[in-house]
């Protein structure tokens, strides 16, 4: 199954390079969102907690602007049926998830680099904790966004439905990741942050399991 899913991921990757369906919207959103924050702050120095919060707000809305493409583009182009004829549901989900995980990591890495360059209070004291939060948060974000994209792909008002449906599902993840990011700014140890880390690990495991169990029902009419 891994080889088939990888083939599907490669198809999506090549397709993205040719159509720029998600990359352009994600890049534009990152630039616009960070510019708006910088303009609205002006010469003010914002606190660490606000910087950490805004970091995850940008990540959330950027994900909302581009991650739905995994399934929406197939549905809009009418290729969902073709995909159903060549692959099992688990292959499709794994391939799409792999694509979204890599897209989320690249996108969030750019956001983190821009934040550290442009926001003076974005100073990480506990770098391993920040990286672990970043990795676990990105996995959770990619898994949730992929399964929600599969649900909304068959709906009419996709654009509005995606953030509305994602918000309650992603809220526990975003809130915990904001807290962990603040811990990494403060230099809090892993020992003190283990409860929040356990929440994020639990969230990732639950979402991944639930997604694989539900995808069959979502994928077929």
């Amino acid at each position: 199954m891994i080889a088939k899913s990888y083939a599907l991921f490669k198809k999506d990757f090549c397709s993205e390079l040719r159509t720029r369906y998600a990359i352009n919207s994600l890049a534009m959103f990152i630039i616009v969102a960070i510019s708006v924050i910088l303009f609205s702050i002006g010469n003010e120095t914002i606190t660490e907690s606000l910087t950490g919060g805004l970091f995850w707000v940008v990540i959330f809305f950027t994900a909302m602007s581009g991650l739905a493409r995994a399934f929406v583009s197939e549905e809009e182009r009418g290729t969902s049926l073709t995909l159903q004829l060549i692959a099992s549901p688990s292959t499709v989900f794994t391939g799409k998830l792999l694509f979204n995980v890599i897209l989320v990591f690249c996108m969030n890495l750019i956001i983190a680099i821009l934040y550290s360059a442009l926001f003076e209070r974005f100073v990480v004291q506990n770098f391993p904790l920040f990286m672990l939060t970043f990795v676990l948060g990105n996995i959770g974000l990619a898994v949730s966004s992929t399964i929600i994209a599969a649900i909304i792909a068959k709906a009419g008002a996709k654009g509005t439905l995606y953030p509305v449906l994602s918000f309650p599902i992603l809220l526990p993840l975003i809130l915990t990741c904001v807290q962990l990011t603040l811990f990494s700014f403060d230099g809090t140890s892993f020992e003190e942050a283990k409860f929040e880390l356990a929440i994020v690990v639990g969230y990732d495991v639950i979402m991944l399991t639930a997604s694989y169990m539900l995808f069959d029902f979502i994928w077929k009419d």
Binding site: K11, R18, R77, T79, L81, I86, G95
Partner: peptide, 29 residues
């Protein structure tokens, strides 16, 4: 086990015919 032809099946327009068929074979394993 199935081969399907219908007007509502859409192939990937950003790829060539040969690329489409190669992709389908790889995804089928």
């Amino acid at each position: 086990h199935i081969g399907f032809v219908s007007p509502y099946i859409v192939l990937y327009e950003e790829f060539s015919a040969w690329e489409n068929l190669k992709i389908f074979a790889k995804i089928r394993g």
